[in-house]
Design a protein around this nucleic acid. Structure first.
Lengths: 147, 147
DNA sequence: CAGGATCCCGCTAGATACTG
DNA sequence: CAGTATCTAGCGGGATCCTG
């Protein structure tokens, strides 16, 4: 079949490349932490009692109820909260504990792995605070020169 | 006006919270590196001559032509490549050099800042390779137990 | 060769309403 | 209280065509 040659091969190569990239552990990690709510939940669960997500102290993971999280992370829809929590539980980053009280009580807490990820996030935070202002400055300069 | 009270306040609080989150340097950093092509371009420009993105050597930034990048990053559209390159240039992470030869020649190269970011990515890579298999294992277990 | 402009599509986040 | 289900709009991203 001469009807499928160059374009077909190219498409296949692309698919293979994409698969290769998708299989990369680094990419999987990025896919996970780049999620807005993942990082926020991590920060919430990883921080101390303060409601300031900005304040990080390498404290132990703080167990929180569903409603607490929903209150703390002001702009999250139940859907995203639940969805994110489930995926984090699935990945073994948080534990979900159901206490069959009269109104059901569910608490979430970081696992060791989750805590470890939280530590990594703090590393990112350091880099961001160190270099992000440079980036922003460059951006401003670039925009100024632009038409 | 009693017509706007609870719901309004809540919406405003949400907006403020979102703004707060968006202003966070860490989030900005995440928004940047979570971009699929950003990380790949970084890897391409930061790695040595090998076409294996997986192989990282803390080598100097390698200057590459537009077409080289487009060839190396198999599954990228010109749009995304250009778009990503421009944003990286804007942020001062890469330099764009135009050489007015007969057919125009444009080369891209990492700046110090870009190189620095590339180093950070390698840190992420380490974490990913160390813990990602655990995550995957947990995920598999979770899926098994599920209905 | 390098890149701008356009159209189009799938995905996913968000709002709303319902349940145990 | 802690979710689940559905519906919709917005936008990121790809393909395609065109220019200097």
């Amino acid at each position: 079949m001469t009807t499928m040659t160059a374009a077909q091969k190219k498409a296949q190569a692309k698919a293979e490349y994409d698969a290769f990239v998708a299989a990369c552990p680094s990419r999987k990690l990025l896919d996970r932490i780049s999620d807005k709510w993942v990082t926020l939940i991590l920060a919430a669960l990883g921080s101390d009692g303060s409601h300031q997500l900005g304040t990080h102290c390498a404290g132990e993971s703080r167990s929180m109820r569903y409603s607490e999280l929903s209150r703390l992370l002001a702009g999250v829809s139940q859907k995203m909260l639940t969805q994110t929590l489930r995926s984090l539980e699935r990945d073994g980053l948080v534990t979900r504990t159901v206490t069959p009280t009269v109104p059901v009580t569910v608490t979430y807490e970081l696992t060791d792995l989750g805590l470890s990820l939280h530590q990594l996030m703090r590393g990112l935070k350091s880099w961001a605070e160190t270099h992000m202002d440079d980036v922003l400055a460059n951006r401003a300069t670039y925009d100024t020169h632009a038409t």
